[in-house]
């Protein structure tokens, strides 16, 4: 498969550059290559979408970048610096991740305050009190939520907390793994608006993984389509809006997102 060409605007520096990434699961003869020779580069301030069906390896790419899976080879460079397997503390300040299921990604017995202040303590930030309050205001929750527990919040509110947590260390790059797929459409709209606002305000770089083509068209400038661990096509958002993809598989995905059509 051809790896993606760098079709980034030339004037922006590259925030994240992945070259020939392979991720493996299992050992010996059961070793399975979940991600195959994936190369993407994302300009600083850009918003990059990874779409594909379940099992296509799209989340695994994010997990390799964030260091949650370790069995990978290839090159991952952040702001021009190639990163090693062992992650530095400072790396966490550059890249943070928001997970799919807000019901699973918050510690059920930690208060929101503890969830948000823990990364600050680990990284020896000052003014923890103010920062936590400010973070809650920034994601539209308000300080009254500070001493509640996750079970007292709705799914949308939980996802706001998860976003606040990811923003605590003031990262430059946010990895978003299906951030709205567990939410109702009306709540999805709120969260997507919040994410767009934050990106504008803080000039963040997003890498968004989703199976929903409408969401990716709304959020991203450039989109890579993955299937069976490989990138089959990279296109800009306009190509997608005009429904003019090159690859057969992308066409099929686009067609299916239009709804049901009786057998041809």
């Amino acid at each position: 498969m051809p790896s993606s060409e760098n079709t980034m605007p030339k004037d922006m520096p590259i925030a994240l550059n992945i070259q020939n990434l392979n991720v493996y699961f299992g050992e010996g003869h059961e070793k399975f290559r979940a991600v195959k020779d994936v190369s993407i580069s994302v300009a600083a301030g850009g918003s990059y979408g990874l779409v594909g069906e379940s099992g296509s390896g799209k989340s695994t790419v994010l997990r390799a970048v964030s260091g949650l899976v370790t069995n990978w080879d290839g090159t991952i460079a952040v702001n021009g610096e190639t990163i090693s397997k062992k992650r530095e503390m400072s790396y966490c300040r550059t890249i943070q991740m928001v997970f799919q299921d807000p019901y699973a990604s918050l510690h059920p017995r930690h208060s929101i305050d503890r969830t948000l202040s823990e990364p600050l303590r680990l990284h020896k930030f000052d003014n923890i009190d103010d920062r936590v309050n400010q973070a809650l205001v920034d994601v539209g929750l308000g300080t009254s939520f500070r001493f509640r527990y996750p079970h007292q919040l709705s799914g949308g509110q939980r996802q706001r907390v998860a976003i606040a947590r990811a923003l605590m260390l003031e990262p430059e790059i946010l990895l978003l793994d299906e951030p709205t797929s567990a939410l109702d459409v009306s709540v999805q709209a709120e969260i997507l608006n919040l994410l767009s606002d934050i990106r504008k305000k803080r000039q963040l770089t997003y890498i968004l993984v989703t199976h929903d083509l409408a969401v990716v068209a709304h959020m991203c400038d450039e989109i890579a389509v993955m299937s069976h661990g490989e990138i089959v096509e990279v296109m800009d958002v306009q190509t997608m809006r005009d429904s003019k993809p090159q690859h057969e598989y992308t066409r099929e995905l686009l067609e299916a997102s239009e709804g049901y059509q009786a057998e041809a």
């Binding site: 009306s186 709209a189 083509l213 409408a214 969401v215 709304h218 809006r241």
Partner: peptide, 20 residues
């Protein structure tokens, strides 16, 4: 109407999604 408007659309980009 609110639900329909809250959906992102592939073909018609919107700056902000309308919130129900």
């Amino acid at each position: 109407r609110g639900l329909l408007n809250a959906l992102p659309d592939i073909h018609q980009p919107k700056d902000q999604l309308s919130v129900l």
